[in-house]
Design a protein around this nucleic acid. Structure first.
Lengths: 244, 244
DNA sequence: AAGTGGTCTAGACCACTAA
DNA sequence: TAGTGGTCTAGACCACTTC
């Protein structure tokens, strides 16, 4: 085994054993060089990993601090693309029923968690598995007014609206918030989806953010309870590990 | 800006521009040293990040290869603990109503997605925010028969059952599957939770895995639609900063 | 002013790969 | 056998923090 990996392991074991209290100062690079009789480069290579694992924090001018005894665990869900948020195939078709600008009054503003009075471009319609099949859900898409120009692209269909916005306005989605709740299926939607009015339904709301604190798009999907369930898997992961 | 970050950016831009075909050999460290008139250490510091981002692959003896033009994106959700799967406070109290072994016949087996005929230790009861407050949900916990001994620990209350199992049987949760669906609130639960029978409800099912392909615990929680919504946030992550 | 970690140089030897 | 990336040494200067 190479020297810096030995050092890394030695130091990791010392930390794990509790030789340093959390928050304590860790020996300086110079001290470690002397102790192990290696060059500073070798010590730094060893410390680098320990820092990545979240065991140590280094601060130029101030020193190295012990953050944790072991590489803590967490659980992660990873999606290669936002398409994974849906677990029905991406090849559903969207049949637009309404399209136009709306102002979010009290009720809608609460549903969207946006400020009352803001204006949105709204698309609403049915999503189907096959063009003449049964509806999977009723979808409402709200695009913040500044990005209303996507309306032109939308005709092309197919692609998700957030993709069109990203491309047209050179935005990059930084975060997506998803909220899942239950409600009774509203009357009009029930008719369109051919389910019992007021029957239980799943509502997923997704808010798409790009740098700003305000979302540039919000989508609502109303799924009949019998036709959809949202599933996700979370895997245990080591903190700060880099290479698979 | 420091030299190695400049180099990193320059090289990243060259790769992005398509100056090298995917799979192509990238210039050797020596060549880059000559070209930019820096020491090898500085070049290596620049290449290190590009490799972490998945743009380059380096192989001792063989050279450096171009893997991709841009750092590729994915989205991750991170939870520090499994408690984060709930977004109500961890300090809810659980009032047990039923406790005993059950055999999963057809209906239950379908609900749990387990094989018909398997036996489970079942806890069922109400979860409340305050000991005498209104119920947040009706919860059913199914523990695989081999781990039925947690029944003794359970009396202690407080801690989640999967924690007790982990401790008692030295298991480590490797994966959690969560499914969220809607349904009409069953009669008995509606009464206990003081909501309208058959009113819309959210059902979350969580299956806990540890190495085995079969879960060691499954939980079902029935939430009145008005009292609970499941929220999660997904952040964009650069490739290589997290384990996929 | 002294000490820290961050950056950088100019060398060196090694294990490994490919011709 | 020549060249690659991986490791390591022994220096150096810097920006920064702390006293």
């Amino acid at each position: 085994m190479v020297r810096y990996k030995e050092l890394r392991q030695t130091l990791a074991e010392e930390i794990a054993s509790g030789a340093y209290a959390i928050g304590d100062r860790f020996p300086t690079e110079h001290e470690l060089c002397t102790r192990f009789e290696v060059s500073r480069h070798t010590i730094r290579e060893a410390l680098r990993t320990l820092e990545e694992q979240g065991l140590l924090a280094r601060q130029a001018g101030s020193g190295t601090t012990v953050l944790a005894r072991s590489p803590g665990q967490h659980y992660t869900q990873t999606l290669d693309s936002l398409g994974g948020l849906f677990d029905y195939a991406a090849d559903t078709t969207f049949e637009s029923r309404y399209e136009g600008y709306v102002t979010a009054r009290e009720g809608l503003a609460r549903t969207l968690s946006c400020e009352a009075g803001t204006r949105w471009l709204r698309f609403a319609g049915v999503r189907r598995l096959a063009p003449d099949g049964v509806g999977v859900c009723w979808t409402e898409i709200f695009v913040a007014e500044p990005y209303g120009a996507v309306r032109d692209d939308q005709a092309a269909g197919g692609k998700p609206v957030y993709d069109l916005i990203q491309k047209r306005f050179q935005l990059q989605i930084s975060e997506v918030e998803q909220r899942v709740s239950a409600l009774a299926m509203p009357l009009e939607m029930a008719k369109t989806l051919e389910v019992e009015p007021l029957s239980p339904a799943l509502l997923t709301r997704r808010r798409y953010f790009a740098d700003s604190a305000e979302p540039f798009e919000i989508s609502l999907s109303f799924h009949p309870a019998s036709r959809y369930a949202f599933t996700q898997r979370l895997r245990r992961a080591e903190q700060g590990t880099n290479r698979p």
